[in-house]
């Protein structure tokens, strides 16, 4: 069943709240939207409504973390990274194990428009030493990632969607911080020409595009999700960029600078086709925006075909 990763996050945190009394949750007047209210309704003594004051919320979360608590500080991703100075000093430089939960990431928040869209958050957060940047895929990896963050006292940014996500990871999937995951019905890397790496919102669209390229366009394309964006899962990445891979396509609901596309382009000498957002967002329905910004399956297929054609021409 489709579920927004914010929804799965909220349910998981509530469940974990029973066994982990060190979890405290903070929100800045968006508890209904971030789903932190699910925890707050059951554990009111460990839930702190900070009002529309995200900088202070982040500072308080840092203090709670330094004093031994495991705080989750929640807001829209855009409003969290707008307080980058508090994140860089109070959380990062202190190495305070705060989980910053940024929801409604990317253009898929829809009608609210650009001001509510986090599109540069991955780029900012991964510039902070020791910051863990995680973006779950569906209702299968989200609970495991939230659980990981409860059990490991690291500063982290958890990027979540309002967009409902289809379950695409196998039921047997087990999260590992140092590995991404290959998606079903696409060829293994050793048999592929292209590698398609995706994170977050467009995961299903990318998988469907890779399946189409492999089956119908005779371009075997492996598709994998990267739910750990930082620290870079380098060994795993090297293992999927096999010698037969000619080029890499990255797909993300984030600016193509700073995010997954940049991360991969920094890591490899292979040609990289970055698919993502390249300008301001705007109002529209979720599906209109996905199509407008080229994150739907058909758009991904078209860009991939053009990229593949370019690769072959350059080899002539």
């Amino acid at each position: 069943m489709k579920a927004a990763t914010r929804e799965t996050f909220g349910k998981t945190l509530l469940e974990l709240g029973h066994a982990h009394s060190d979890i405290v949750v903070l929100d800045a007047d968006l508890a209904k939207s971030t789903k932190s209210e699910l925890f707050g309704n059951t554990f009111p003594d460990r839930f702190f409504e900070c009002g529309i004051a995200e900088g202070n919320m982040i500072g308080i979360a840092a203090g709670l973390a330094l004093a031994g608590k495991r705080p989750f500080a929640c807001s829209f991703g855009c409003f969290l990274i707008g307080r980058f100075e508090q994140i860089r000093m109070s959380v990062s430089y202190n190495q305070a194990p705060v989980v910053l939960v940024g929801t409604h990431a990317g253009v898929t928040i829809g009608e609210d428009g650009h001001s509510q869209m986090a599109l540069e958050d991955i780029g900012l957060m991964r510039n902070l030493p020791d910051m863990h940047v995680l973006q779950p895929t569906d209702a299968i990896d989200t609970p495991q990632i939230v659980s990981y963050l409860v059990e490991h006292r690291v500063p982290a940014y958890l990027r979540l969607t309002r967009q409902k996500m289809a379950p695409i990871l196998p039921d047997t999937y087990t999260f590992s911080l140092s590995e991404g995951a290959l998606l079903p019905q696409t060829p293994p890397p050793a048999e592929a020409q292209l590698l398609m790496l995706v994170s977050g919102g467009p995961a299903e669209a990318a998988m469907l595009a890779a399946q189409h390229l492999s089956a119908d366009a005779s371009i075997p394309t492996t598709c994998a999700v990267m739910n750990t964006l930082w620290p870079l899962p380098q060994t795993w990445l090297d293992s999927v960029i096999t010698s037969n891979i000619q080029g890499i396509i990255t797909v993300e609901d984030h600016y193509t600078t700073g995010g997954l596309g940049s991360i991969i382009a920094e890591h490899t000498s292979l040609p990289v086709q970055k698919i993502g957002i390249e300008t301001y967002g705007q109002s529209g329905t979720e599906s209109e925006l996905i199509h407008h910004y080229g994150l739907d399956t058909q758009s991904i297929i078209e860009k991939s075909l053009a990229f593949h054609k370019g690769l072959n021409l350059s080899q002539l």
């Binding site: 702190f48 500072g59 308080i60 203090g63 709670l64 004093a67 705080p71 508090q86």
Partner: peptide, 18 residues
């Protein structure tokens, strides 16, 4: 607490007091 970027120490202290 690491400080030096002004205006942040009180929030952290509030977190510790909490």
């Amino acid at each position: 607490a690491s400080t030096g970027s002004l205006g942040q120490g009180l929030s952290m202290a509030v977190g510790i007091a909490l």
